[in-house]
Design a protein around this nucleic acid. Structure first.
Lengths: 350, 350
DNA sequence: ACTTTTTGTGCAATCGTTTGCATAATATGT
DNA sequence: ACATATTATGCAAACGATTGCACAAAAAGT
């Protein structure tokens, strides 16, 4: 087996405690002679000592692991988040344990239980829905938790997300200003924070512009590509089809693209498109798609920050950080009339 | 704190050992009365007992965790693999610890060390390059290891991968049969198994077809999108540009698409394109891209199988499984002349 | 009725660390 | 020169589980 403290103790003649104290920087309360330190460190090096973190965790009741819960790791938006989280947390000496909840609340509960069984020191989660009772339980138990991207309305917890209402507003505003009057919205899973907020933004702008909201062109039921596909097919088949589509997420947009290709509709000549999320592939498409970009690196950085703050100071008032998304204008929107009534919105969202 | 065995022992009056034996199905060598079992199970339930897996791991020297190493989790090919691995391993009661090596050998070594520190029970890896000495070390130490996707030439270890040579061959064969004479190859990181094998296949078909290999149109230096972008720009600027591009991976292809869009080249009218890998977005593009698809689910299944077999039987002869990829023909290739010399290849790769 | 086997339970060691407390040796202050 | 402070080290008890061994009681075999 691998070397342990005992081996080093035996070889050097020092006690287990002394060896432990030398090799474990933490406990500086006690002093150790320079010579002893040297000898022990050298011996440890020679023997290729690596601490048994399992034993350490058992004793210290800390794992230095952060649990991460995402709805779908194969979605590039989340895999990018996971990648960034891992590298950010690594800087602070923390590892990550990632679970994919498959946009499924019961799998989410199950995964959460597993993470707790693993005794993670904290959690960063992008929740499936608005069902928060299992998470509230966690927080009550004093386990640091930060929500990322997906927020809870009725749960006061550290959170970071993009301002989804505002993001939807700038997208729809842009479409209207280019002269579109009939803009469809393909939403994600109703009940999820991201989807509902985006819908709010969509409605708000139509309202400001004085365009009546037509519920028949607010469609969609989840965040996957197939949803985008099926709803686009449906929208195109209407007697009075929309001239533009605003899509609630990157995957949905993929489905939209597939349907448009099948139906031989040319973007933007025959239909315009704006999407929420700016996955890496949007800029490679022809035409490139106009998109609402989320500052992922910044979100991740803030999430980690909030988490560590919480870990240091468990009693502190919780904070909710909303970041401003930006509209990246590419070539997927047709200007259908000369500018008439330019509408203007301000980001007055809390 | 959470309930532990001791609490249950105290509450029921039985000893720690008895409680442990009831709650831990494993040790069936000893029998326990049905009544006792009932009482203890009920009490455990009531108290919401959850075993401390850290303590358990310390004692049993098993973590029930499998370490996974991938070069880039934000690449959809690998994030799909990770997702599938996690769900497949979960079926067997194993968790996963995922590390992203960022296509970087020294980060790979570092990650490997971390995984060992975590005492994972086995490893499934997609290695960065052909540098295998750190992995050989692992195998010598008796830790079960399976390589996935990326194989080592000079390292006899359980491995599963697609037949990359064959995959490249069917792709290039198809291009030639559609009448292309000048086919460029944009490779990935030279020295990696995947890239080198695909290049072999490319060369082999040209050889069979009697077309001399032009080293100036074998380009590229890594698996990322920017590589595809820059090399496509370069290929298009040649005095004698290729009529078709065969791209070694999905991300490279994204870069190719970006460059083609910038240069206003229409696919397939002005340039044809076939890509290795069949990431989920290929079918959403217009035109849809012809691609060499890898049977990811099958690869994952086999990798997990090999791993468990190895864990059961450490001495067994190692196996290497090569799966057959398939060409998914879509609309990114132009037929440039009527069929003349149809070439035929057989999958005679070992 | 007396061995032998089976069944049910408990004792105590162990896994590899960390850390509060005790203590010996040395240094410092007066 | 003596009291006190500081420095350097070791002892032993945790952390929460698993498991070989011992042993009593009950069942089975003769």
């Amino acid at each position: 087996m691998s070397t342990k403290l005992k081996d080093i103790a035996q070889k050097t003649g020092f006690s287990l405690s002394t060896v432990s104290r030398v090799l474990h920087k933490g406990s500086q309360k006690v002093s150790i002679s320079a010579e002893t330190t040297r000898i022990i460190k050298k011996t440890a090096e020679d023997l290729g000592y690596r601490p048994n973190i399992i034993a350490r965790s058992l004793r210290t009741e800390q794992t230095h692991e952060i649990g991460i819960l995402v709805p779908d790791i194969s979605n590039p938006f989340f895999s990018t988040i996971v990648k960034n989280l891992a590298s950010e947390l690594r800087k602070f000496g923390y590892g990550t344990v990632v679970y994919d909840t498959d946009e499924n609340t019961s799998l989410e509960e199950e995964s959460l239980r597993q993470l707790l069984d693993k005794r993670v020191d904290g959690l960063i989660i992008a929740a499936v829905g608005q069902e928060a009772k299992h998470f509230k339980e966690i927080v009550k138990r004093g386990i640091p938790l930060v929500t990322l991207d997906r927020c809870f309305n009725d749960f006061d917890v550290d959170a970071v997300s993009v301002d989804n209402v505002y993001g939807a507003m700038i997208a729809v505003q842009y479409l209207l200003n280019e002269g579109h009057q009939r803009v469809a919205f393909i939403q994600g899973l109703p009940g999820t924070y991201a989807s509902d907020e985006r819908k709010k933004g969509y409605c708000k702008v139509l309202d400001i512009a004085g365009i009546p909201i037509d519920p028949t062109i607010i469609v969609g039921s989840d965040f996957r590509a197939f949803n985008g596909y099926i709803e686009t097919k449906h929208l195109l088949s209407m007697k009075n089809p929309p001239t533009a589509i605003f899509s609630a997420s990157d995957l949905i947009t993929l489905g939209v693209l597939e349907a448009l290709r099948e139906e031989k509709k040319i973007i933007p000549q025959e239909i315009s498109l704006v999407t929420f999320d700016d996955p890496y592939f949007t800029k490679y498409l022809s035409p490139a798609i106009t998109a609402v970009a989320q500052p992922i690196e910044r979100m991740v950085e803030i999430a980690v920050n909030l988490l560590f703050r919480r870990m240091k100071n468990p009693k502190e008032q919780s904070r909710r950080v909303l970041l401003e998304p930006s509209l990246i204008i590419r070539n997927s929107v047709l200007r259908v009339s000369k500018l008439s009534a330019i509408i203007n919105i301000n980001n007055t969202n809390s």
